[in-house]
Each structure stands twice: as C-alpha cells, then as structure tokens.
C-alpha cells in the first residue's frame, strides 16, 4: 500500500476519538456504555469525515424508544468531534431498524420519526431512567462500603469531602465512587464538600433515621438493573455468539 504512515495513524487517532465518544453513550435502562455492552458492531470512517456506526441489540424486540435514544446519542456525541462531517447510525436486526436509522441519520427528533406512535419527545423517559441510574450507582457504592465494614449510620452522615478522601483499596471501589459522584446532584456547580455524600436524586438529605428504609427502596432498583444487564448480555451472546468469536 502506498498510504503514508501519517494517514494510517490519523485513522487510528480518529477511531480512538470515536470510541471515546461512544464510551460516553449509555444504554439508559442498564446505565452502562454501549462499548462495554458490546452493542457497537463496527465503526467506519471515510477520509472526508463521514462516520458510520453499526449497532446491534440483544433482541429484535428491544424497546424502540430506548433504541432510538441510543442511536440519537451516538449521532450527537460523535458529531461533537470537529473533523466529523456527518454521522450515520445503522441499527441492525430490529423491528424498527429502517425508521430509526433513517430518522437519526437525517437528524430528526423522535416525534418526527414516529409521528403516529409518539405523543411527545423522550425527555420524561430519559429523566425517569436517569433517576434509576443514579439510584443504582448509589446503591452499588453503598453495598461496596457496607461489605467492607462501614456502618449504615456512618454512611448516612458522611460528607462529600469525607467520601472523596476515603482510601479505597481497589479499582472497583474507585470506579464505583467516581461513577456515583458523576451522577450526584449539585457537584458540578461546586456544592460544598461538607454536604451529605448520600442524598436523594434531588439533593434532599436522607438522614440517619430514614437511611435503612431508603436503602431497601433503592435496592430494588439496583437489583432490577443488574438483572437486566445480565439478561441483555446473555441474550446478546446467544444471538451473536458465533459472530463475537
């Protein structure tokens, strides 16, 4: 091949940049990235800046609204890269593949893509699952800390500053803390470090009295998300097993 080394590297760098963007796109139900979930089948980049992302899901029947959200988020995130001229998303083997692919690639909204089936955009649904995602991250971190000997009362009174300063022995702990703090309200606006670390979605304090009850409530959300994650991974493997190998 006559292609210079420089342009090859250029392609690699572009690919890496696209992958980094895709790592930020989450399955809203599972609160995990499409890369981790192996939903991204292929990435194709043309020299003129056109990008094509091929995506697959665990079943043909996965809910169309979530499928649209993911496809639309791919378009939005990848489109943020300066050199990208256009983003085409190809969702495969899904009952609404054609409509979603066309809608997203043309930059249409959800309602524009499904004028007869949708009565409003997806913001309410997004917010509902963002809340569940937050509770799941919170519960995962709390479980981790409880398993390592922290007491419920201690956790209920812990401040953001104290949580940040905790020495966590492994990568898992670091990751759980980072993911939780990323979703916790108010921190981006510089919430003071002496506010409670574990609060409700809208920053309301939980308090030591209610903490046990609160834990039980969010445990359901955590467990449901974990189950769905396991199920989706198993189904994806059953569906595309040969192709993955």
């Amino acid at each position: 091949m006559l292609g210079s080394k420089e342009s090859t590297m250029d392609y690699e760098a572009k690919l890496k940049a696209v992958e980094e963007k895709l790592a930020q796109v989450l399955d809203p139900e599972l609160d995990e990235s499409l890369i981790e979930l192996r939903f991204i089948e292929a990435i194709k980049i043309e020299p003129d800046g056109r990008v094509r992302v091929e995506m697959r899901l665990p079943t043909y029947w996965c809910a169309a609204n979530f499928a649209f959200m993911m496809a639309d988020d791919i378009r939005a995130r990848v489109g943020e890269l300066e050199w990208v001229k256009s983003v085409a998303v190809e969702l495969k083997d899904h009952f609404y593949s054609d409509r979603i692919n066309q809608g997203v690639s043309e930059g249409k909204s959800f309602v524009e893509t499904f004028p007869d089936e949708a009565t409003e955009e997806l913001e309410a649904l997004r917010a509902l699952f963002r809340a569940k995602g937050f509770q799941r991250r919170q519960h995962k971190l709390l479980r981790y800390l409880l398993e390592r000997g922290y007491a419920e009362r201690e956790l209920s009174l812990m401040t953001v500053g104290q949580l940040r300063a905790l020495t966590l022995v492994d990568d898992e702990g670091e990751r759980l803390r980072a993911r939780y703090l990323e979703a916790r309200c108010g921190l981006k606006d510089g919430a003071p470090d002496d506010s409670f670390a574990f609060v409700e979605l809208d920053c309301r304090p939980i308090g030591p009295q209610r903490f046990g009850e609160y834990l039980k409530r969010v445990r359901r959300v955590w467990l449901n998300t974990e189950m769905n994650g396991i199920f989706c991974r198993s189904l994806l493997e059953a569906r595309y097993g040969e192709k993955i190998q």
Partner: peptide, 10 residues
C-alpha cells in the same frame, strides 16, 4: 416491549 404511546416506558 411495544406498547403505545411509544415515548412512554413500554
């Protein structure tokens, strides 16, 4: 998974 309206949780 496919109840309407499509913007709600199916």
């Amino acid at each position: 998974p496919t109840i309407l309206p499509l913007n709600r949780d199916a």
